[in-house]
Design a protein around this nucleic acid. Structure first.
Lengths: 373, 373
DNA sequence: GACAGGAATGTTTGCGTAAACATCCCCCGT
DNA sequence: ACGGGGGATGTTTACGCAAACATTCCTGTC
């Protein structure tokens, strides 16, 4: 915030170096005795134009592939560009056009599979559309932090924002969003105020629970994710609803924090429950810890206890035993997020609403009928 | 899909609510008969200046925290800013300043732990320094693809680039980097042309292999990463060197592709080797697959075979058994990358060279002395 | 051969910001 | 009371690009 004088001076000196001689005819020649300071700024359209013997506008036309330029001229300009190593200044371009061709992504952490995979898909989709992706991690998921991040985002060169987090954290924060910024939210509640793209948590959960019931289990226990997580909440709700629909007893959910370690701790408790023959873990990492706990306690999977996960992380097939789980199509979520913001940017549609991406049950070897008896 | 006017209107109303009325009366008057197009651009310094009754320059001074503004004036300006929902236009700012305060990160994939964790640390460090991070994923690791990515980067609003990949893929590509762009490379060869920051692969490997030898194993097998990977190469080399130094026999390395699945397949082969009592896996995921293969083949870990990994992913402690592994300090790697580019940007140092981040051996329960006999 | 029509190219302008320079005004010392 | 110093504020300008408008020049037509 406060400008350190030393830094300003340095910047100043630097600027002096780069702005080189205002006289036109002099061109960009380095003064004879001067140090060979590297030019900070590259060649501009004007430089190219001068070398190619055309006007700046013609260079612009070539640069943007506009028609109305003779092939001969075009080649001259291209040659000049190459020679000078010209590349368009995106700041100037953005200033002129009023858009940055950049999408901001705001999220808490890259330590959950879902966020990372979604981000990856977003980046890929955006690149395909000619958009760059700017990352905006928020250290701590408090409203204050989020607000700060949004404020920074506001100053950032971004046309739209994709938010990977719970909507309620946005609420107070939103005030600081630039007026024309479009927002799409992943991993959150149905928003009437934003577009939301999310995995079909309920559907996936239902499939998982039904799979276990269909195998003959009396009921299904739940190793839930952290309370603050919307996804965890949704999965827990759907689990309960599915059991109730089927008229089954609903055991108390055991809570973890998504980590394998928490799954292990929870697993030690679950292993003590004699009546428990099937567990639905809210993600694969916790399922991993659960498997270890059951193993240590001598409860065989799937013979004594069936375990099912959620996410289908790449390693799930290598668990012991290979994990039956609910596959999330993160790539699709990311793709839809990008598609959503782009549509909004282009003014094609401002429709709010929730888009659900279906899941797929992947049956491996951690689930089986309950032990007879 | 198709833009419904009604929807657009709702969006408009909503946005107004957020930013408390952007200026309307100003120069940007909507043509009488025209559709009520939402103001694409927000308030500018001039708008704020007008409302606050000061000059644009004073607004600029307040905006940048420069001295020479009376507290009274400052408050007036701040009030005007709030009222108009003003936020600096980063494009104009960048154009004027000649810098974007943004760092580009170019990488292949977010599916390896290392890349993700490094990226996370980079983003965090950059944010702390007031820099944003722009992501530039490259779909396929070919020189052409990389070159394309760099070309796009060249047009991108970026002051510096951090490359997370092998240097040789950069070689042909670099030509298209803007002249003044600074580059730091993570996860690669010692570069005399770039600054390199990397985990001390050799040191970590040596620690792992020595740990096993010290436990009494005659020799150590190696489950290597893919040939193209520099890190995999480095670990394999160090593994061989350590064994040779100790005068031990060097078994042929078994190659995987980093995935747990490939570790499993390799593990099935390794399990058949009667003389094998210790395996050094080049990463934790492959170690996971290896554990499963050994388990299936009835080879107990660590009683029959010791297994050690590399990375120390969060789940490593929840493997069966908990995995002894080499901890990589990705956070530090990311931090040093950012520090490196910023130093270069600021002209404090143009030194090229390799910075190695030390590793730490985390001993859990997958390693033990070899079976007696 | 004069002229309309249109394609190729040039000139002007302004996007929002901040450096550089120009004023203004208040307070101080003599 | 007057001149000067310095802080507060205003004015001008340029950053690089591209839309809008202006100009040039060539072609074909009668």
């Amino acid at each position: 915030m406060n400008g350190s004088p030393a830094r300003d001076e340095r910047a100043q000196r630097h600027m002096d170096g780069i702005v080189d001689t205002p006289h036109r005819d002099g061109g960009r020649a380095t003064p004879p005795g001067a140090a060979p300071a590297r030019p900070k700024r590259g060649a501009s359209m004007a430089d190219v134009a001068r070398l190619a013997g055309v006007s700046a506008q013609t260079v612009s036309r070539v640069s943007n592939g506009y028609p109305g330029v003779t092939e001969t001229t075009r080649q001259q300009v291209l040659a000049a560009m190459r020679k000078l190593g010209y590349r368009p200044n995106s700041a100037a371009r953005a200033l002129k056009r009023g858009e940055f061709r950049t999408i901001g992504v705001i999220l808490f952490t890259l330590s959950t599979t879902g966020n990372v995979r979604t981000l990856e898909a977003i980046a890929a989709s955006a690149a395909r559309e000619g958009y760059a992706v700017t990352l905006l991690p928020v250290a701590v998921p408090t409203q204050d932090e989020v607000r700060g991040a949004f404020t920074r985002l506001g100053e950032l060169a971004v046309d739209a924002v994709i938010v990977i987090m719970e909507v309620h954290l946005l609420d107070a924060a939103t005030v600081s969003l630039p007026p024309s910024t479009q927002v799409v939210v992943a991993d959150s509640d149905a928003g009437d105020r934003y577009s939301v793209v999310d995995t079909d948590q309920a559907g996936g959960t239902r499939a998982a629970v039904r799979h276990l019931l269909d195998l003959g289990h009396r009921t299904v226990w739940h190793l839930a994710g952290p309370e603050e997580s919307f996804a965890a909440q949704r999965r827990a709700d759907a689990w309960r609803a599915t059991l109730e629909e089927a008229g089954r007893e609903v055991p108390e959910a055991v809570r973890g924090d998504w980590s394998a370690e928490s799954g292990y701790r929870a697993g030690l408790r679950i292993a003590e429950e004699p009546g428990c023959t099937a567990v639905f873990a809210a993600n694969d990492q916790m399922a991993l810890g659960l498997l270890r706990a059951l193993h240590e306690k001598g409860r065989a999977v799937p013979d004594d206890v069936s375990v099912i996960g959620f996410d289908d992380i790449p390693e799930a097939g290598s668990f012991m035993p290979p994990l039956t789980t609910v596959h999330q199509d993160f790539a699709e979520v990311g793709r839809l997020c990008v598609q959503g913001v782009l549509r909004q940017i282009r003014g094609e549609s401002a429709e709010r609403g929730t888009t659900l991406v279906p899941t797929r049950l992947v049956v491996r070897r951690s689930t089986a009928p309950p032990p007879t008896g």
